[in-house]
Write a protein that binds this DNA or RNA. Structure first.
Length: 476
RNA sequence: GGCCCGUUCGUCUAGUUGGCCUAGGACGCCGCCCUCUCAAGGCGGAAAUCAGCGGUUCGAAUCCGCUACGGGCUACCA
């Protein structure tokens, strides 16, 4: 595990086949943290060599999600489809060196071959029929227009070992390696070729990627060696799983990163949350900001086992981050989710909900009563236990009169006034408060009543009390 | 089937040079306190014989082996 003397350069290399999901975001994050900590570069590469699976708009979506999380990349993203000729040249070079060869086998023959191997219960691997075609013949057939792919020539014996920063040393027997395809017949490279060429061209020092690549890592190592290029360090990250221990998917309610934004999560919370999926600082700290993470991240503290995403923990973390926001900032973020309501109207009300929110998405519902009067009351909510309609109407009426007489509309006088009133009419203050709460807000669960009333203002509160009284009348 | 990786409370994890671990923290859960509801906050609790078995050792969650289970890869996908 020798430290690379080269400057640190890492990359996140998604294929544009959909949105950025959590696992990808975490891979990107770990790359980003590592780069920033070592004052290196974090690059973005678009692996779009699979023309069939390409989804329009995907690249933009991925970039927006990365930006939202604050994972800003350096330099211009490398787009593989724009580098077709480079890969072709690289494949030719490999053929020239004897490290690769053209294969003219048809898909039909390959399928037949595999079927036979399956029948004989042998490993399904290319049988290397084309490996022994003389170079001149190979070149002639290619020149004649016969379709072909280029395959990597694997050593028949020996072992290839990888010193992975997360998994430790992993040894593979070369005889188990397949002569996989490097260049497809459509002229596009497969992942393996493009990976080696691009990482070399980008001078990538550390390959930090999903552990799905671990099994093909020896091929990659051999490829890099065939080119006689410097070998980067490797770190394979375990998967993020859903609650059923299956790879994270839609059905778990674990959504694409951008959908978390819709659901009212803060990017800071998402980052903190996924950072702790498979990694921990080794201390008892739980809340770490991006700068903290950059300072404390360490690849060898990454867990080699897969992590199961804990959505409840995200909710808690999100609440923590919401409480740490300044009221102004929170108001801005809430207003941005509420379209029609201007920030100035949200701001005064924010302190009342700040410690009650788990997600921004809960805010509109929680705040609604500040902006619109309750439309319709439910008797079962308005009437405290054991109090009838008449008594409740009378109590509300008494409140109205008492509040009317207040000269100062502030927390202290209002509370004193109401408690004295409760005492005077022989009501438990909790009952009075609940009746008032429903009268003023239309609901039984709200931010603190007195504060809410103060913010609403005296005329509005009195108006709502009258409406509540009116609503009680027909019930009598 | 073949190859590779993994396995500490329900979940994320601490633990990594074997003894200070009668295994610590966090989320969630339960109870109490606070209290005008709900939260937040405070306090306390239940919760892992460290996957199992066999070694090495005075001593193992920590080292070795085997087994079981889970996962990944096994495409002209990434």
């Amino acid at each position: 595990m020798s430290e690379s003397p080269l400057p640190v350069r890492v990359r996140y290399a998604p294929s544009p086949t959909g949105a950025l999901h959590l696992g990808g975001a975490r891979t990107a994050l770990f790359n980003f943290l590592f780069a920033r900590q070592r004052r290196g570069q974090f690059l973005l590469r678009i692996e779009d060599t699979d023309r069939a699976r390409l989804k329009p708009g995907s690249q933009e979506q991925i970039q927006e999600a990365l930006g939202w999380l604050g994972l800003n990349w350096d330099e211009q993203p490398v787009v593989q489809s724009q580098r077709k000729e480079i890969y072709r040249g690289a494949a030719d070079e490999l053929i020239g060196r004897g490290a690769a060869y053209r294969c003219f086998c048809t898909p039909e023959r390959l399928e037949l071959m595999r079927a036979e191997q399956r029948a004989r219960r042998q490993p399904e691997r290319y049988d290397r029929r084309c490996a022994t075609i003389p170079p001149e013949e190979s070149a002639r057939r290619a020149a004649a227009g016969e379709p072909f792919v280029v395959r990597q020539r694997m050593p028949a014996e020996g072992t290839t070992s990888l010193h992975d920063l997360v998994m430790g040393t992993v040894v593979f027997r070369n005889e188990t390696l397949d002569d996989h395809v490097l260049l497809k017949s459509d002229g596009y490279p497969t992942y393996h070729l493009a990976f080696a060429v691009d990482d070399h061209d980008s001078r990538i020092s550390h390959v930090i990627r999903g552990d799905g690549w671990l099994p093909s890592a020896p091929k990659h190592l051999l490829l890099i060696e065939a080119f006689q290029w410097p070998v980067p360090a490797f770190a394979h990250l375990p998967l993020v799983l859903g609650p059923d221990r299956k790879p994270l998917a839609k059905r778990h309610g674990a959504k694409d990163v951008l959908e978390y934004r819709e659901a009212g999560y803060l990017p800071e919370a998402i980052v903190n949350w996924i950072a702790f999926l498979g990694w921990s600082p080794g201390t008892e700290d739980e809340i770490l900001s991006m700068p903290d993470l950059i300072a404390r991240f360490s690849i060898d503290k990454v867990q080699p086992s897969p992590a199961i995403a804990n959505l409840e923990r995200l909710d808690w973390l999100n609440g923590q981050y919401i409480r740490r926001l300044s009221p102004d900032e929170l108001a801005r973020r809430i207003a941005s989710t509420m379209g029609e309501v201007p920030v100035e109207r949200v701001r005064p009300v924010v302190p009342l909900v700040q410690e009650r929110l788990r997600t921004l998405a809960e805010a509109p519902d929680m705040l609604r009563f500040f902006f619109t009067r309750p439309d319709g009351y439910r008797a079962d909510q308005l009437l405290p236990k054991g109090k009838d309609v008449e008594a409740t109407a009378a109590a509300i009426d008494a409140c109205e009169t008492a509040l009317q007489g207040l000269t100062e509309w502030a927390h202290e006088p209002v509370e004193t006034c109401l408690r004295e009133l409760a005492h005077r009419i022989g009501w438990a203050s909790r009952d009075l408060f609940m009746a008032l709460r429903v009268a003023v807000t239309g609901r039984t669960v709200t931010p603190p009543l007195i504060e809410s009333m103060v913010v609403l203002g005296k005329p509005e509160v009195l108006a709502r009390l009258q409406r509540a009284k009116a609503a009680l009348k027909p019930l009598n």
